[in-house]
Design a protein around this nucleic acid. Structure first.
Length: 457
RNA sequence: GGCCUCGUGGCGGAGUGGCUACGCAGAGGACUGCAAAUCCUUGUACUCCGGUUCGAAUCCGGACGAGGCCUCCA
């Protein structure tokens, strides 16, 4: 058994030893995407970070003893608006967007969560939760809405550490006439006939923002579970309200024992926004050359993301990606044709310290020289699969074709050059090398007299 | 205005009281016909001002700076 896992708990603002409720059923819930558009690189951060945590938990407690739930929110007013804008059905939009999301996440080297529940398949649980809240006096119906009564929960605000007074002081709250308390939030709201809706005791309507996570975590992990994760911006109001809903519905003090939040992401030093023109999607990083003049493999994106500790703000820059690519390629060379052994104890210990990837990475640099088999195992552990190398080779073939060369042409040129070099005909040798270089193929003469090549652009 | 993070060398980024993290880039060298790759060596740091201490990047206070939340944005 490795030394114990410590994680930073937003509830207590401190690092704590992780103690699962049930070692044979460790439960993790992470807020997943609202599927209305391509996921941006900021969305990728929690996906990658919590995938690493999932892998670590599986290692510590056993692959079959960890349950990871990441929801798909497929009912939301942004979805309705976008579908209307494009003239397609909501179902078409959410299906298509989800497919792209799944492909993106796979490219980033993430394991599938144990369950990816959809909000629209948990409407019944949401209604049950709301009914519980109403009968317990924590919610009320008004004007076809159902609202959570924030004043009914004295400990409201514990996660974000703000009191009701503070919130009311500076907040621009939406003071709807049907609200009893200014901070009360919507659990259920009425739908127009043009909007998606479900029958409920309060008429045809749809859920408010926060209730879906309370319903889905309940359905798949139970009333109380171990870890709840998400972006730092979700602490308030989303997670605060999830806690309010779940704790009040089940009459519990706690919804999840550990709350983990990843830091925000900036792009080249500025907040990512469509108006600044620096909005970067996962898809375009993978498939286009719009960021940094080249496409980036999922592994490089993953490494670049993990190189900044998950709680720190991260600045997403071309330079950081270039650095990550260098490190990654260096490692791939080191583990070429190496059979992975086992991740080292030291590596696990580093990750056990609140996912201290930087410490782990420093150790990997040592392993590169001392123990490539262990390096390969550590990389595999983190989702940097060795099959990457194979797929890179395939793309090199494709790239050769793109620059108008076949592999046999190239090999013929290389053997011509080797002959020239044997007769010390450096002029001819350099001519061939320059020719290939201008086509985009870089040559490397090895000690043993062979020549290897890589496509450079 | 309220609340919360954070400020380490050219860049990224660990480190929570004393002993050079690490990586990238840079410099020097080895190897090479020349390159590339590889290997060896190597410089540069702790935002500022006070305080605690024998001793602080590390603890406390303050200033300045950056970012986030309070607006269904991860």
């Amino acid at each position: 058994m490795s030394s114990a896992l410590k994680i930073y708990n937003t509830l207590t603002r401190s690092k704590e030893f992780f103690e699962p409720i049930d070692r044979s059923n460790v439960r993790l819930y992470v807020c997943g995407p609202t599927v209305y558009d391509y996921a941006h690189i900021g969305n990728a951060r929690p996906i990658i970070v919590f995938d690493l945590l999932f892998r670590l938990l599986r290692h510590l407690y056993g692959e079959n003893n960890v349950k990871y739930v990441r929801n798909i929110t497929d009912v939301d007013d942004k979805i309705n608006a976008r579908a209307a804008e494009r003239g397609i059905t909501i179902r078409e939009l959410t299906e298509k967007t989800n497919q792209i999301f799944q492909a993106d996440v796979k490219a980033l080297g993430c394991l599938d969560p144990t369950v990816q529940p959809r909000a629209t398949e948990h409407i019944a649980q949401m209604i049950q939760l709301i009914e519980r809240l109403m009968s317990a006096g924590h919610a009320y119906a008004a004007d076809r809405h159902v609202l959570f009564s924030v004043p009914s929960m004295p400990q409201y605000g514990e996660l974000s550490r703000r009191s009701l007074d503070e919130m009311l002081a500076g907040a621009r709250v939406d003071v709807a006439p049907y609200k009893r308390g200014d901070m009360d939030f919507v659990l259920w709201k009425p739908s127009q006939s043009s909007e998606p809706g479900w029958d409920s005791p309060w008429g045809r309507g749809r859920p408010g923002w926060h209730i879906e996570c309370s319903a889905m975590s309940w359905a798949h992990l139970g009333e109380i579970f171990d870890i709840h994760g998400g972006g730092i911006d979700l602490i308030f109001p989303h997670h605060e309200n999830e806690i309010a809903q779940s704790c009040c519905a089940f009459d519990r003090e706690i919804m999840a024992h550990y709350w983990m939040h990843n830091g925000f992401l900036q792009v080249e030093g500025e907040k990512m926004s469509k108006s600044l023109g620096n909005f970067v999607t996962i898809h375009e990083l993978l498939a286009s050359e719009t960021f940094g003049g080249r496409a980036w493999s999922g592994a490089i994106l993953r490494l670049a993301m993990l190189r900044t500790h998950y709680r720190q703000p991260i600045d997403w820059t071309v330079k950081a990606l270039e650095d990550a690519a260098k490190v990654y390629n260096d490692w791939m060379r080191a583990i070429d044709r190496v059979t992975p052994s086992e991740p080292t104890e030291e590596f696990i210990v580093a990750l056990n310290d609140d996912l201290n990837f930087a410490k782990a990475e420093a150790h990997l640099h040592i392993l590169k020289k001392s123990n490539p088999a262990a390096l390969a195992a550590c990389l595999k552990f983190m989702g940097f699969a060795s099959h990457e190398a194979a797929s890179d080779n395939q793309s090199e073939e494709a790239q050769l074709a793109k620059i108008g060369l076949t592999k046999s042409d190239l090999e013929q040129l290389i053997s011509q050059r080797i002959e020239a070099r044997l007769t010390k005909n450096w002029t001819e040798s350099d001519r061939i090398r320059d020719q290939l270089e201008s086509l985009g193929v870089s040559l490397k003469d090895n000690k043993d007299g062979t020549t290897s090549w890589t496509v450079i652009s």
